[in-house]
């Protein structure tokens, strides 16, 4: 990544944070919270596809299980919200260990199909088992008091709690990408046989990335169940897996902010087009097709490419086109 894009990234991050702080005073907070949950979900998904090159088509499983576990434990066991969320995240991580262990043995379309099949099993489990409430889901989940002090029924308190979780998750992903581990992941994505020949047991790295991605997806689902006070079959259905793919692609695969932007675009569309009923899906489909045809790198990906082109063209820019020794 060049200096230009890195600097742009810092500025964009600061600007987005400022927007995030002001937004609940301008827009309906629940809408922004929903978008933040999905943004975290998309970022977690992007960790796997953007940085390891694995397309999972079953991420609803982790999002959904996190949502159900938190909703259930908070409602039935009267756990405090922070514990409920931790538990939801932990169960999603465990599920990620099992499913990941099975799925990483394959790549490409086979990997996608294995993850989809496993996620559908979770869907049927959620439909059939008694504790998940079947078609009804788990409703009227109490938000409770964070650490026994902060009343999460206050929309703004809840908002900043959700923003805090999003930032934490975002930071973990950002750090993971820029860690020694992240460096190995990039090497595996770039050339797996070569990484093996350098002595890396690539399956173990892929599995850890998979578990991290599942855990953070679970964190997003857990938080979502408190925001809406509801865990439902929608959370584990395959369309949810599709939606996160859509968000990531629209925003920009393999970019830091792409999934966030993509999530906000998709959620906004769903929200403001809701009155057109089932036309939402059609409009979404058209947007998706346009996106894939016109700007394949996604919104953020195109912006980065644009900035990079300008940096390259600018005179005196530090482009290593002609290194010494030629």
């Amino acid at each position: 990544m060049t200096n230009g894009t890195a600097k742009l990234g810092t500025w964009a991050g600061a600007a987005l944070l400022a927007v995030a702080i002001v937004l609940p005073f301008v827009v309906y907070p629940v809408f922004v919270m929903k978008a933040l949950c999905f943004a975290l979900f998309a970022c977690a998904f992007n960790l796997l596809i953007g940085y390891v090159g694995l397309l999972s088509f079953g991420h609803a499983a982790y999002f959904g299980i996190g949502s159900y576990v938190t909703a259930y434990t908070v409602k039935a066991w009267a756990l405090p919200p922070e514990l409920g969320i931790l538990l939801g995240t932990a169960v999603a991580a465990l599920l990620g260990v099992v499913f990941g262990w099975l799925a990483i043995r394959r790549s490409g379309i086979y990997f996608a199909m294995v993850t989809l099949a496993l996620a559908q099993m979770v869907y049927f489990y959620a439909l059939q088992s008694p504790w998940t409430g079947g078609e009804d889901g788990i409703q009227a989940v109490p938000r409770g008091h964070l650490l026994g002090i902060f009343d999460l029924n206050e929309p703004l308190v809840m908002y900043f709690f959700v923003l805090g979780i999003f930032l934490l998750g975002f930071f973990i992903i950002h750090r993971t990408i820029h860690s020694p581990f992240g460096n190995v992941l990039k090497a595996i994505r770039e050339n797996e046989p070569r990484a093996i020949s350098l002595g890396y047991k690539t399956d173990q790295y892929k599995l850890l990335a998979f578990v991290l991605s599942a855990a953070l997806s679970g964190l997003a689902g857990s938080t979502k169940s408190l925001v809406f006070q509801l865990a439902s079959l929608t959370d584990v259905y395959w369309t949810m897996s599709g939606e996160v793919v859509l968000m990531t692609l629209v925003g920009g695969l393999g970019t830091v902010f792409g999934p966030v932007v993509g999530a906000f675009i998709v959620i906004t569309m769903e929200n403001y087009l809701a009155r057109y009923g089932s036309w939402v899906t059609v409009i979404q489909g058209i947007v998706f097709v346009l996106c894939v045809l016109a700007f394949r790198r996604g919104v953020v990906g195109e912006i980065i490419a644009f900035v990079q082109r300008r940096t390259v063209r600018a005179p005196g820019a530090a482009t290593p086109a002609h290194a010494p020794g030629e």
Binding site: S179, P180, F181, N183
Partner: peptide, 8 residues
């Protein structure tokens, strides 16, 4: 190489 919490 597995330290995902450590800075690069």
């Amino acid at each position: 190489s597995f330290h995902f919490w450590r800075s690069e």
